[in-house]
Write a protein that binds this DNA or RNA. Sequence first.
DNA 1: GAAAGCTGTCGAAGCGCTTCGACAGCCTAT
DNA 2: ATAGGCTGTCGAAGCGCTTCGACAGCTTTC
Lengths: 336, 336
Amino acid sequence: MVTLAEVAQHAGVSASTVSYVLSGKRSISVNTRQRVERSIRELGYHPNAGARALASSRSNIIALMIPLRTDMYVPVMMEIAIAVATTARTHGYDVLLLTGEEGPDAVRRVAGSGLADGMILMDVELDDERLPLLRGTDQPAVLIGLPADTTGLTCVDLDFKATGALCVEHLAKRGHHDVAVIGEAPAVYERHTGFAERTLDGLRGRARELGLRLLHRPCEGGYDALAVTLARILDERPGTTGFVVQNESAVEPLLALLRQQGRAVPEDVSVVAICPEQVAVQASVRLTSVAVPAQEMGRLAVEQLVAKLDGRGADEVVLIAPELTVRASSGPAPVQ
Amino acid sequence: MVTLAEVAQHAGVSASTVSYVLSGKRSISVNTRQRVERSIRELGYHPNAGARALASSRSNIIALMIPLRTDMYVPVMMEIAIAVATTARTHGYDVLLLTGEEGPDAVRRVAGSGLADGMILMDVELDDERLPLLRGTDQPAVLIGLPADTTGLTCVDLDFKATGALCVEHLAKRGHHDVAVIGEAPAVYERHTGFAERTLDGLRGRARELGLRLLHRPCEGGYDALAVTLARILDERPGTTGFVVQNESAVEPLLALLRQQGRAVPEDVSVVAICPEQVAVQASVRLTSVAVPAQEMGRLAVEQLVAKLDGRGADEVVLIAPELTVRASSGPAPVQ
DNA sequence: GAAAGCTGTCGAAGCGCTTCGACAGCCTAT
DNA sequence: ATAGGCTGTCGAAGCGCTTCGACAGCTTTC
């Protein structure tokens, strides 16, 4: 393994000079810099991560805690994770992958050992048990998702409340009065995941304002579960003509069942989905949808965290404004 | 931050003693051990990762390179990644997430900097450009997937060749003569991804032996792409009654289109999928399938790597035997 | 032309841990 | 009784880097 000292010797300078060439923290003459850089190249030098971390108390690593759960749409998680990893690299950080399994202890371990300079938490619950720990250490962190109390925290999320409102508005404009919401699996609500409840807030709030009737039903996803859920909905509210779906694995089953029952989309019923673009576009009927901007969430989270690590930027809640894209699953707006 | 020295002082022993209590590399009297452990707990001590890595030249980190691509089924990747992360933890390792973006340079960087003790590579191509680098450094590594030349490498994978053979056998037993294979996106074949080609080998080989006619068509997935692919297949081979699908995003579209065309599954045509269990079970017709054992692959990869890092275990190709589960999408075996 | 200020470089200390050799104290075998 | 072996502990060296203060040699300023 080539060391700094060897590079220094090869270039005929002191070790500290090489270090300053690398970090750019002091000015170095062009001549010296070039000689050092050449030596680095010729010897194939890579700074030792451990030594660096020890001397500078900076690991240049960001920890990303992803949930273990399989009851939520995995591709979104994956997309966020990949966006986090690639964005982190552009800022000189690597990403350490922590699974929820270890629980809150992971926060303690990572903060205590200096393994990572900061962390990004996904799948935040309204009253997340990791938050007290986070507030306790001065570990810089960014949450993807919104807990109930955001004081002293930096959060990034889609504005799910506005998303809910937007969906209802869209259906209202198209003249629907009875709207059903097919939600995430019951477990998601039971553990009070922020985004699910906030969406519901938005949906209900605007429905009330616009005088729509709203029926919300959690759903496991898959054909069998959806069949049961849909039957119950139509039983209770036979006049339902608008659907909001916030559960990617219920999308295709819903379309299939509606078709099977002779309810044409969008002629008889309209469907609005809250899902990644890809799902909306690849569905059997191209879906009017509010996209979950997974990539942007990952990117923003890293940028907030890096700002904190650089001493810039403060605690802040960053909400991404939802955008609804009209596609084939909802009828044209009636002429005003 | 609490240090080893502080723990030592608190417990009234020397720093090296504390270190030996932690590592267990020398025998320590019960009395001393307990005193030290108590001090550790009371002070809330966590060893500093950087210092440890520097002194021991072991980071206790495994690097996992995942592909950036979105042309393959992401949940499988995610499941592997999670299995890797959780298994790694049980062996005392953390996982560093590298995306393919950085390319082969990532191998150099990680190996050179001592950031990770070893690496796991996913999405291996038959002639992967990372392999020469890997062979060049003595970085311990495990591949998930099989390259063309496996000498000097440790690989873990589902036996895709046997998988292909198994699917053909199943369809042959049910009396099908004309079988169509709906494969991964063309790009997957173009970049010579091992698993896709090996599956094809297995399918073709056994088809030849059993005298079946086989038609293979790559497919992007999604409804539109599948409609085109299916039309071409039925145009070229109208008598096709057996399908093998190796592309999760083509599964549901295929079932929907067959239904729409009045071809009943399994009465008229049989479908066998190569996909994760969950997809097979959640499909609109429960699919006869060979499961892609993502979790087991992740787990095995870590175990192979840890064995290498411990000086146990040698280079080896570990193939997981495929298992075909009969469900509703293929007819009953004819009475012999 | 002396004081003050830059610029570029160096030496040395030290980050927190692991690990090697040393050794005190004790037990066993002769 | 003595040599030889264990066992448990300690001190010190050192892992490869960053960073602080020092300073030599310039240039600028009054």
